[in-house]
């Protein structure tokens, strides 16, 4: 594989990693601060994509549609928190898994009822159309660079909020030891609500950004959810730094593993069969990585401080 193609694969891996980070950031905080397994986090990504698709088509403006979709994702997150999740915080993980599993069924079927089962496509905004030359006549779409930039910007913003503000301090403290934070007089339920709603919005943002490059369809959140779980388990539950590092590792491993295993398998399989087998086998890489990490470092690569 040539150097420019490797560059493209690395950029694709970064882009997948950053999208995963946006989903995983909310998931890891909800998980870390509230000790809550939210399987329904993936459908919030899906809802973000659908809202973006619908609102961009309705307003005719990408930027306006995106902003409205974010507000919508935030509102849906708040409603779900108030109606359902709030009642599950103190319950066993088994109850949480089951209830949020039920919620996935509801929302997947709900979007199917509203928008139909067929995939919806969203156009790339005019300002971000076109490609950048990487040399050797290889082009890379501007929009994908925009996703990478947006992902990095959100990561930086999140780091600032969590590391430098009072609410961020409370979130970090909550991830280390929620009962003590509560005992110190912090309204822990309000904190939970804020963390949850922001997480839902970030997942929705990832879905909205991914909408122009993926097909928007029911169930699109499920695979992302599983990947996000892999990310937060590898990175360490409750740790934003860990989620960031693990998301990039998973994104790169998945993307590079896919392209290189096709090349490797082509040496002894016909091309079509090589693609099929490589698709399955390379999807296993990240799960193998997760099993290895869990085995040797059950707390993850960069665990939240004070949490063991």
């Amino acid at each position: 594989m040539s150097f420019t193609l490797l560059t493209i694969q690395i950029l694709n891996g970064l882009q997948l990693g950053l999208l995963l980070f946006l989903v995983a950031a909310g998931l890891t905080l909800v998980f870390g601060v509230m000790d809550f397994i939210n399987l329904a986090h993936g459908v919030q990504y899906m809802v973000g994509a659908y809202l973006a698709a619908a609102l961009i088509a309705y307003t005719g403006s990408f930027a306006l549609g995106l902003v409205l979709a974010l507000a919508g994702a935030l509102a849906i997150g708040l409603v779900m928190e108030g109606l359902i999740f709030r009642h599950l915080y103190g319950r066993s993980h088994l109850d949480q898994v089951l209830a949020t599993f039920g919620l996935i069924l509801v929302l997947n079927e709900g979007v199917k009822m509203i928008w139909g089962a067929a995939p919806i496509s969203v156009g790339v905004p005019e300002a971000l159309q076109g490609s950048v030359s990487l040399g050797d006549g290889v082009l890379y779409p501007v929009y994908r660079f925009a996703i990478i930039a947006a992902g990095l910007a959100v990561a930086a913003g999140l780091w600032l909020v969590i590391d430098r503000t009072r609410i961020g301090m409370l979130v970090r403290a909550g991830a280390s030891n929620a009962p003590i934070v509560s005992a110190l007089g912090v309204d822990i339920n309000r904190l939970f609500m804020i963390v949850f709603a922001c997480g839902a919005m970030l997942a929705g943002f990832a879905g909205a950004m991914a909408a122009p490059i993926l097909s928007v369809e029911p169930g699109m959140g499920d695979s992302v959810l599983i990947l996000a779980f892999v990310v937060i388990v590898i990175g360490g539950i409750g740790s934003i730094r860990g989620a960031f590092a693990a998301a990039l590792i998973v994104g790169l491993l998945d993307t590079l593993g896919r392209s290189y295993s096709v090349d490797l398998l082509r040496l002894f399989l016909p091309p079509a069969a090589a693609r099929g087998v490589a698709g399955g086998l390379s999807s296993m890489f990240i799960y193998i990585l997760m099993a290895v990490v869990l085995f040797f470092r059950p707390e993850g690569l960069l665990p939240a401080r004070g949490r063991s």
Binding site: V233, S283, Y287, M290, L294
Partner: peptide, 21 residues
């Protein structure tokens, strides 16, 4: 705990993708 739930999920996914291959 949670790690067990996740790692069994991971092994299940491995089997799933293996069968796809």
């Amino acid at each position: 705990g949670v790690a067990f739930i996740m790692i069994t999920l991971a092994f299940g996914q491995m089997a799933f993708f293996f069968s796809q291959a």
